[in-house]
């Protein structure tokens, strides 16, 4: 009974993760604008991988493996939103369309030159 419950939970989590990943891939190829594509890719990177890894965690044979998978989830949830943030910031910096907006208050007053 418990095995069946575990299997069903794993399958459901994996399938939902895969659906989200497929959506993300379609979005990356369908959208035209950088920020839309970034949103799609970031969704796959975080939510899709979260569901997949949670499914694997549920079906993990022992506690150590499950903890390692949870650690990987933490790592990915720190890493991929930051990369999306960097892409978005680069786009906002170089696209003249966003230059016309009023400056955001409290936006990096001490912007230093770090490299010559």
């Amino acid at each position: 009974m418990l095995e069946w419950l575990r299997f069903i939970l794993t399958a459901g989590l994996l399938i939902s993760g895969l659906i989200i990943l497929i959506t993300a891939v379609i979005g990356v190829y369908k959208f035209d604008y950088v920020l839309n594509r970034m949103h799609a890719a970031a969704m796959g990177d975080t939510l899709g991988l979260l569901f997949c890894l949670l499914g694997l965690t549920v079906s993990a044979p022992d506690l150590a493996t499950a903890l390692k998978l949870l650690l990987i989830i933490c790592f990915l949830w720190v890493a991929s939103p930051v990369s999306s943030h960097l892409i978005a910031r680069l786009e906002v910096t170089i696209n003249p369309r966003w230059q016309q907006l009023p400056p955001t208050p409290g936006k990096d007053e001490k912007e230093e030159e770090d490299s010559p």
Partner: peptide, 22 residues
């Protein structure tokens, strides 16, 4: 074109402080 790159990004720095040692 390197001066367009984001510099001293606080979010990146915070996450790098967590992730780099790991």
């Amino acid at each position: 074109d390197r001066h367009y790159e984001p510099k001293n990004d606080r979010i990146l720095q915070g996450s790098a402080m967590v992730l780099t040692p790991i």
